[in-house]
């Protein structure tokens, strides 16, 4: 079964990423390694290809840097929280499964958000509903509906950051409109 060709521009980010991985693995970023890596990456991408990742065509590095900072701070906070809960609560811990409906319907962004929130507000993605882009999260130490509301707000804030970094133009516009309404 043959598939339609993917234009080079769509697979270019993947090829570049593979070349960087190749260079990092050899611990050598000289021209020879990179050229050979590029050939291997091109072959790999074309012979063993996966379904194409639909990027959104936007990438804003100015939002990425503060996001990484926020991510690291929150990661430390989340780890400390798990440590603290393990020490003080342990077996008496109470949790909840919270549904959060995301704004974006792009698979790429839902995946990115799912990854980010698995690590930062202390939640675990149990299930994803693609049709409504709803994430079902297992959250530690949620005892009331206010706590669940805090989790929801936190997840939507993380999604808003990711939309600003690499969301589609439509998502960004609706996010702006939502903020203007507030």
């Amino acid at each position: 079964m043959s598939r339609q060709r993917i234009p080079l521009i769509t697979e270019l980010p993947l090829v570049i990423w593979l070349v960087l991985v190749w260079g990092a693995l050899w611990q050598d970023f000289s021209a020879g390694t990179l050229v050979f890596g590029a050939i291997i990456a091109y072959v790999v991408v074309n012979v063993f290809y996966l379904p194409p990742v639909e990027l959104t065509g936007r990438f804003n590095i100015l939002w990425l840097i503060p996001f990484i900072g926020r991510f690291l701070v929150k990661l430390v906070a989340a780890s400390a929280e798990v440590f603290w809960l393990a020490l003080t609560r342990g077996p008496r811990l109470r949790n909840a499964v919270v549904a959060v409906e995301l704004r974006s319907h792009s698979d790429f962004l839902v995946t990115a958000t799912g990854h980010a929130i698995s690590l930062i507000p202390g939640s675990l993605v149990l299930e994803v509903d693609r049709s409504t882009s709803t994430l079902y999260l297992h959250c530690l130490n949620v005892t009331s509906s206010e706590d669940a509301e805090v989790v929801r707000r936190d997840v939507l804030a993380t999604e808003a950051w990711l939309v600003r970094i690499m969301g589609t133009r439509a998502d960004l516009a609706s996010l702006r409109a939502e903020e203007a309404r507030r």
Binding site: A86, L87, N95, S118, L124, H138
Partner: peptide, 22 residues
Amino acid sequence: IGLTRFPDLLSRMHAATKPQVL
């Protein structure tokens, strides 16, 4: 500590992901 003290599978998964990444 989280793995031994948390009560069920799902809360143990929290202990196995976040502190480990950091």
